[in-house]
Amino acid sequence: MSKLVRFAADILYPVVLIFGLYIVAHGHITPGGGFQGGAVIATGVALVIVAYSYKEVIGWIGKGGLMAREVIGLMGFIGVALFAFLFGMPFFYNYLAGQGGLFGVPVAFGPNPGELNTGGTVPLMNFAVGIEVWGGLSLVILYLLSGLIEKKDQEEEGS
């Protein structure tokens, strides 16, 4: 793409990244959550992939990082849910909510200003799902683009 598009992508990518992480981190207070924030970050990655050429992007990002992100996200999500067994609770029990400490400030019924240190296991699951969706959706676009590049190379060799 042209220099203008690359400049705009350079400016916009950190903004989109921070906005997506904000949506993930505040998922238990404001509208949003893991899936929405991860999709927003993946849109930013798609912007960078469109603005630069495929070989440059694959040099920066790499396939292993995104795949590791996806696997770590899924395993972390199931691990946080499985961790309830250590406390003698059923699967998916919210063992941190209302207990004090990390993510454990109790919340009263009714409208309130909102505290970031609430929510129990929900913020941890939000981060896990956000990381997984970030890796997964970016990886889908990279895979499809690699197929396109390979088709072009084959046509050039064949002709």
Binding site: P31, G33, G34, G119
Partner: peptide
Amino acid sequence: QEQTGNNNECTAVVFD
């Protein structure tokens, strides 16, 4: 709100 500590009810239903 009291059981899960989430102000966002959608996230409480989806994740808890």
